[in-house]
Each structure stands twice: as structure tokens, then as C-alpha cells.
């Protein structure tokens, strides 16, 4: 291992880090919100590994299906629960990822503010539409 290993990369408050003593004590860093965003992006990324493989495999398996076959498949409780979980985690991950991209490349304050609101609202709307459609198909 390299000498990167001297400090634990998951340690949110490494000694000798850039945070001031007070910030280090509070544990929030310069952004004021700590490593919350960073951590959630990793958690959702890990969850998306099996979920996205499941999605691709399922879509291949149902490539021949007509609408009625798809409705029967989507009505199965395990499929509905897995797909609903996919929407929540996928759109959460999307919301976090798009936010970082906007923050990095859009420097005009008003434009950044507007785009971030659109990103958050569209992500939450897609999450809600996906979850409720799956519930509807499973319970109808």
C-alpha cells in the first residue's frame, strides 16, 4: 500500500486536516453540513449495484413480453417492492449527483439556485411517480 494509507480515508475529521479546531470538534467541515452528502451518495451507489443489474437482467428476460405479460410481472409483490426501492435509491442518487455537477459548473448564483430547485423537484417527482405506479400495479 502507498503512504495514502497513513490516514483513514473514511475518518471525517483526520488530524492535521484543514478544518479549524472548532469545526473538527463539531464535525461539520467548511460546508456546514459535514460528510452527509458524500456518505449518502456512497450508500445509494452501493445499493444501486445489485438493483441496476437486476433491472438490466429483468428487462432482457421480459424483452418478448407484451403489455399483459408485463402487467402480470409488475403485479408480483417482490417485483413491485424491488422496483419501488430502485426508484427511491436511483432518484436520490441522481439528485445528489446532478447537484454536484451543477455546483461545479454553474457559477451564476440565480441560475444555480433555479437549476438546483428544478433538479430536486424533478428527482422527487420521478421518485413519487415510480413508487406510486408500482404500488398501483401491485394492489390493483
Amino acid at each position: 500500500m502507498s503512504d495514502w494509507n497513513r490516514e483513514d480515508p473514511l475518518d471525517r475529521n483526520p488530524p492535521g486536516g484543514r478544518a479549524s479546531p472548532l469545526r473538527r470538534a463539531i464535525g461539520l467541515g467548511s460546508s456546514g453540513s459535514g460528510a452527509h452528502h458524500w456518505w449518502l451518495q456512497r450508500v445509494t451507489a452501493v445499493a444501486l449495484v445489485p438493483l441496476s443489474i437486476w433491472l438490466v437482467a429483468s428487462l432482457i428476460a421480459h424483452a418478448r413480453d407484451g403489455q399483459q405479460d408485463l402487467l402480470a410481472w409488475l403485479g408480483r409483490p417482490a417485483v413491485a417492492v424491488t422496483m419501488a426501492a430502485l426508484w427511491v435509491i436511483l432518484f436520490w442518487h441522481m439528485k445528489l449527483g446532478l447537484r454536484v455537477i451543477v455546483e461545479d459548473y454553474v457559477h451564476a448564483d440565480r441560475m444555480k439556485f433555479a437549476i438546483l430547485i428544478v433538479v430536486d423537484l424533478v428527482s422527487l417527482a420521478l421518485m413519487a411517480i415510480g413508487v406510486f405506479t408500482n404500488l398501483y400495479l401491485a394492489l390493483h
Binding site: Q67, L71, L74, M83, L126, G130, T133, N134, L137
Partner: peptide, 8 residues
């Protein structure tokens, strides 16, 4: 999501 809604 549009695909799922269209199926439903």
C-alpha cells in the same frame, strides 16, 4: 418511469 407509466 415513462415506460412504467405507459405499461400501467
Amino acid at each position: 418511469v415513462a415506460w412504467l407509466v405507459a405499461v400501467a
